[in-house]
């Protein structure tokens, strides 16, 4: 195995086109290294992109937030720009593994590994994440939803590098959050996780809803039927009735017959209600 240290995106895509499926990108390495050490993966080359400065930034571009692929989970959890504009993402990043993992694990790694239990992905989905993928032959943009084609199998081509993720920040009279359930309160993978973004009109009618889930067997995804069940709902006494949306969410997000799916069906409605309550309380002038 070779270790190829690259310093720029141009060098990275050169190496990627040279190694193709034989090359493996190394960022934080929290997935790649354990797989290598267990003998599950034996690429001919590790392409270490961790030193590329151009992939480290968080910035405002136009109305959007641009997050470089190498931004670490710790930074997502603690950066004030993220906490303010993308609270669900900050909350999700803060519950991935331990501090030791968050120090090095990157948002780009989460996206490209596309694990079904990846906490950050529902939060990225409710921000309508758009990915910029680059290769030697050019660049393309794709929504995260499209990119997540199957578990561990994404639309990423072997010669492509994820460069940045563009996010739509929270608008006026909007709030969002992320909740997960794992087997212990820290360190564990999500058995099920939900992200919700909610917008409300001045007359307290729900105008926009985005719900995304992780856990289970599919890659994280939005749940349009549950979203539709909430749009147009009137808040009564500062409360949002999530009964119908919760039932939709449970049946659409955990349709399998397995016991694990049955568990997820049971907890999903409660998670959605708790999140909705938190969101409504966070939209000023509505919860009171």
């Amino acid at each position: 195995m070779r270790f190829c240290r690259v310093r720029s995106v141009a060098e990275a895509v050169d190496e990627l086109s040279r190694w193709g499926t034989e090359g493996r990108i190394l960022a934080g390495g929290t997935d790649v290294m354990p797989q290598h050490l267990r003998g599950e993966q034996s690429p001919a080359a590790l392409i270490d992109i961790s030193g590329i400065d151009g992939l480290q930034g968080i910035s405002e571009v136009g109305g959007a937030t641009s997050v470089g692929a190498l931004v670490t989970l710790r930074r997502l959890a603690t950066a004030s720009l993220v906490q303010l504009r993308h609270p669900a993402l900050a909350q999700a990043a803060a519950v991935v593994g331990a501090w030791q993992t968050q120090t090095v694990a990157t948002v780009g790694g989460n996206v490209c590994t596309a694990a079904p239990w990846a906490d950050t992905l529902p939060a990225l989905l409710v921000a309508d994440a758009q990915l910029t993928l680059v290769s030697k032959s050019g660049r393309r943009r794709m929504s995260l939803g499209e990119f997540l084609a199957g578990p561990g199998a994404t639309a990423l081509r072997p010669t492509e590098l994820l460069r940045a993720i563009e996010l739509e920040p929270l608008g006026e009279r909007s709030a969002e959050g992320y909740i997960k359930v794992g087997r212990r309160s820290a360190m564990d993978l999500a058995v099920v996780g939900v992200a919700l973004r909610l917008s409300v009109t001045p007359s307290s009618v729900v105008s926009d809803v985005r719900i995304a889930v992780c856990g289970g067997t599919r890659p994280p995804h939005r749940v349009p039927s549950a979203e539709a069940a909430l749009v147009g709902t009137q808040l009564v006494d500062g409360r949002l009735d999530c009964t119908e949306a919760g039932a939709e969410l449970a049946s659409a997000a955990a349709p399998e017959r397995a016991k694990a799916a049955e568990y997820r069906r049971r907890v999903l409605p409660g998670l959605l209600s708790r999140l909705a309550e938190r969101c409504v309380a966070g939209i000023s002038g509505v919860g009171s």
Binding site: R5, L26, L46, D48, W99, T103
Partner: peptide, 18 residues
């Protein structure tokens, strides 16, 4: 590493350059 905790058992030595 640079002041932040890391699990050194799964960190590639090669990526600690600098």
């Amino acid at each position: 590493m640079d002041g932040a905790p890391v699990a050194s058992c799964i960190l590639a030595a090669g990526s600690t350059n600098g």
